[in-house]
Write a protein that binds this DNA or RNA. Structure first.
Lengths: 221, 221
DNA sequence: ACCTGAACACCGTTCAAGT
DNA sequence: ACCTGAACACCGTTCAAGT
């Protein structure tokens, strides 16, 4: 990316754009982890001084927000309006998690960020809300449903981002039931990821619970 | 905490202990947020040089791990063995979330940390696993169940830690369904927290799904 | 408007020196 | 063994100066 040394003063053709900064940041985070994309790292990668970034972004928080937008673009909301609501939620949840799982270190960074107004994330919520309202869910409950599912998805993504050894009983310790459960899961999983198994199990459980809740709703009406 | 200026060399009575460092760190995180408990902040609060901390902890990661242990001590696993498994899970999940909710900024810090061996967290898993195995859940599925529920809990805690404005549609924008759902929830909630509503809804949904799954299990047997 | 370069107030961590 | 003090290699951000 470097173009030798630039002399002071405004360059004849701009070196940076906001989008270039976001793309570079996402790439660095993915390649080097959450701590590998400091403002100084990004500027170094782009061959500019750190202060140059501030002509296009307001600060590090702004960069993180932009990266979140980038990652969120790959979430699939196409099921709403074309499939039954439960299938649409299933598709949404799985693609949501995969979008973040493709860049594991982003999750811890992004999950805490407040939602910027007028963002693509906002339009995603709109599509999901519309699908659920049209399906007959009471408006007052729709956001609780969406947020609850999202909490699970982000928690699962966070889990996947952590080392796979995050949950492992110590050897020869005082947790026999934990060890038995661990060994039994190990055997039944084979090559599959434990985090994936927990996500699939949890998502199926939540959707089953939602289906039951939905059935109870139409019984009241 | 300061005791005037100490001269160089080993003090006659120790100033620090590992536990004192952890307690101070938790207090600072709670009072000042996740960024308010740097190694230098902790040392300043304790009236010592930053390097003094390294006689009792291996580094910042170690401190975070210790704080997680502190917070986790308040998780209630007393239901396992004394209540039906579903009630025990409900009690566990609610106290789990509350333990972290009492120190909101800790969650983002702690959720990503790998589990240290021989920790209290490990014994918590053991009690939960034992309760579920004794209740008749297949050993190979127990950990997926626990991890899935934990993912939801931590995701919900993360959500609660974020500003309450994290999810809010922009005014006069192109997300009408999102806005309707937001307004409807607002009205039905009154004073209650939106994050709480989503957690309660999600937990009830997951437990209902688990109950259905459990019933299906015994049908096969 | 958009870059460089210098500066400021921070980090985590290491290590010699002192008791 | 457990502290101080100095040092190293980092941060994010601001701002004057230059084109």
């Amino acid at each position: 990316m470097q173009t030798g040394k630039r002399r002071v003063g405004r360059p004849t053709t701009n070196v940076l754009t906001r989008d270039l900064i976001m793309q570079t940041s996402l790439r660095l985070i993915t390649e080097r982890g959450a701590t590998g994309a400091s403002m100084r790292d990004i500027s170094r990668e782009l061959g500019v001084q750190p202060s140059a970034l501030y002509n296009h972004v307001s600060g590090h928080e702004d960069v993180i927000g932009g990266v979140r937008e980038l990652v969120s673009e790959r979430i699939d909301v196409s099921g709403f309006g074309t499939e039954p609501w439960i299938a649409a939620l299933d598709r949404w949840a799985k693609s949501y998690r995969l979008a973040f799982a493709a860049h594991p270190p982003t999750i811890a960074l992004l999950a805490v960020q407040p939602l910027t107004e007028q963002s693509r994330v906002g339009t995603m919520y709109d599509v999901v809300c519309r699908g659920l309202i049209d399906a007959g869910w009471p408006e007052a409950r729709v956001l609780s449903l969406v947020v609850a599912l999202e909490n699970f998805i982000l928690g699962a993504a966070l889990d996947r981002a952590a080392t796979s050894e995050i949950l492992r009983p110590g050897v020869s310790d005082s947790t026999p039931s934990f060890q038995r459960a661990y060994a039994a899961r190990e055997e039944s999983l084979g090559e599959a990821s434990a985090a994936d198994a927990a996500f699939d199990f949890g998502l199926a459980t939540m959707l089953a619970g939602l289906e039951a809740e939905y059935a109870a709703l139409s019984q009241d009406a």
